[in-house]
Design a protein around this nucleic acid. Structure first.
Lengths: 338, 338
DNA sequence: ATCTATGAATGAAACGTTACATTTATTATA
DNA sequence: TATAATAAATGTAACGTTTCATTCATAGAT
């Protein structure tokens, strides 16, 4: 493997000059530049990032730590991260933590060992104290945080509360007064926001909170199916069901089908997230879209802000981005029967 | 950031000793080992991989180059790669090439610059010559290759031909004689194998090849929808349709629904791959499952074989793994109407 | 013709590890 | 008791870059 030294020798210049052309330092004369370029091509020289990283303390790689790429929410987010990273000359390590704090810690450690310039932590399980430790080593962006309120961090979030409210309001406009609600895992902040929105929505519309209409789900389709079945079995069954994610909404669709209920004529269903499946299932799911790809790109932007900042004074306040959701009207919501 | 030097000083031993405890070299005395461990903890020392890589020429990272993580086929494969890599102490760079040879080349170059120990190329677009060049720098495993026949490479493939044949035979057992076929992109080897299987199936069963029953698809659901619609519009429409992937099969489901055809009573549909959606759509899709996760783990195994091999003589022949498919019976296939 | 200022190229030190040849300390053998 | 053999610890030279203080060369000013 050819090194810069070899290139220098081949080009008949010094090591420093080779470095200069590689880094586009303008002081090098055109003649030398050409000689070096020629040598690089001939020797098939490829710079060694390890050496560069050792010297410059920047690796041009970042870590993306997510719960599980296999969860249909994350591929698009990951793609957003990757595209934005690539544009900025960064390469990304993909890490799945399975919502397991131990794995999360391991990965973070490995990423630090690898001198990543930054880490994007999606739904982190670790706490503020640990995050501060990480920030001594590299930049950190938090996405969809559970339990960290500090304004000091860079954070990307989604307005889950408002989004859910919007979705429920549409259901209301369609004449629904009895609306079932399936929660996500309430450990997660976004789930709690969605649930709060439901409660506030009822209050605002002067509707009564009926415990029977609220079911706890766990994000997987089967929990939605079960919750949906229970809801539909009710004597006074809801005319619409809001599920805190699409997978569970699809479960509800299944439950409805089993009971020979026609969605949306007999029952309206609304999901959250807008995963691929939402537009592919039948009926197509009306849902509160999460800007998954944009979450990814926004996270990288925050990271780049820090990385390109000359202000190495770390006390700088964090920047919080809140991305907007959007209700995507498809087939699963219709007017309430009167 | 504390270095080994700092640790050595704090522990009152030499640099080499620190290195030895870090690398579990057994010659270090228990007393010193403890002193070093203590110093490491106190100084919160984290080894610097860049320096280690520079010295040892191994980075403990690998690259995974896939078409697009957003394609439902790949998250599971990626997950398989990651899990197997993690177990072996490797971290993985995720690279999406969008089936674009230029992006593929760029990523490969970056990966080499980053001193990856190996690269897993899924559906590579580059040719044998280029691959040989890469192999001068690091190990390479090919997955689902299009156009490279050489037995010299490490390759993971799936028995698409046999899998398709199995699927078609099941359709036949269910009484179907007129079976529509939707191809994938015929640039891809696996698509061609599936198509060949269809042709051979007909021959074997003494069925006539009817051009009208074969439609070209492009892997996305809409192409399946279009092809399905055309097929069902036929005067002598097929009683079953085999789609070369699930997304297109779901498109067929949609086309059938539009024509008020009941799947599987009026029409049987079989897909390929078994993506998540296949079990979530309605009716649930019967499909030829691809062992996506296992493809990932198998690729890493091949990589590890090479990496752990003492035989640095690169002339060693490659190893080809062919993974088995499996027909997953669900709801979309039924008996042909007589 | 000498001196200065400017621009370009050079050379060596440093980054944080590993690896290996030496040195030092300890124990066993004659 | 001296010597050899063994075990443990040390010190130093890489690895391939970047960086920066020097040197060298050229041209302009006096």
């Amino acid at each position: 493997m050819a090194t810069m030294k070899d290139v220098a020798k081949a080009a008949g210049v010094s090591l420093g000059t080779v470095s200069n052309v590689l880094n586009n330092v303008p002081t090098v004369t055109e003649e030398n530049r050409q000689k070096v370029l020629k040598a690089i091509k001939e020797l098939k020289f490829i710079p060694n990032t390890a050496a560069r990283t050792l010297k410059t303390k920047t690796s041009k790689s970042i870590g993306l730590v997510i719960p599980d790429i296999t969860n249909p929410f994350y591929p698009e987010l990951a793609r957003g991260v990757e595209d934005a990273a690539k544009k900025a000359g960064l390469t990304v390590f993909l890490c799945n933590n399975d919502r397991n704090i131990q794995k999360e810690r391991e990965y973070i450690r490995v990423l630090i060992e690898k001198n990543v310039d930054g880490i994007i932590l999606v739904k982190p399980n670790i706490q503020a104290g640990e995050i501060d430790e990480i920030r001594e080593k590299c930049e950190v962006v938090l996405v969809d945080i559970n339990n960290i309120d500090d304004k000091e961090y860079d954070v990307v979030n989604v307005d889950d509360y408002q989004g859910t409210l919007n979705g429920l309001n549409i259901l209301y406009e369609y004449g629904h007064k009895r609306i079932g609600f399936i929660t996500g895992l309430l450990e997660s902040q976004s789930s709690r926001y969605r649930y709060e929105a439901y409660i506030d929505f009822l209050k605002e519309k002067g509707l009564e909170y009926d415990e029977a209409l609220v079911k706890k789900g766990s994000y997987d389709w089967y929990s939605g199916y079960k919750a949906g079945s229970e809801l539909l079995r009710l004597l006074d069954a809801p005319t619409a069901i809001f599920a805190s994610n699409d997978l569970m909404a699809i479960g509800v669709l299944k439950a409805a089908r089993e009971r020979r209920l026609n969605v949306p004529y007999d029952l309206s269903v609304m999901g959250c997230d807008d995963i691929d499946m939402a537009s592919l299932c039948s009926p197509q799911l009306t849902t509160v879209r999460q800007p998954k790809y944009e979450i990814g790109t926004a996270s990288v932007e925050l990271l780049l802000n820090r990385l390109n900042s000359t202000d190495k004074n770390r006390s700088r306040k964090g920047k919080q981005i809140e991305l907007k959701t959007e209700v995507i009207m498809r087939e699963s919501v219709g007017y309430a029967k009167t």
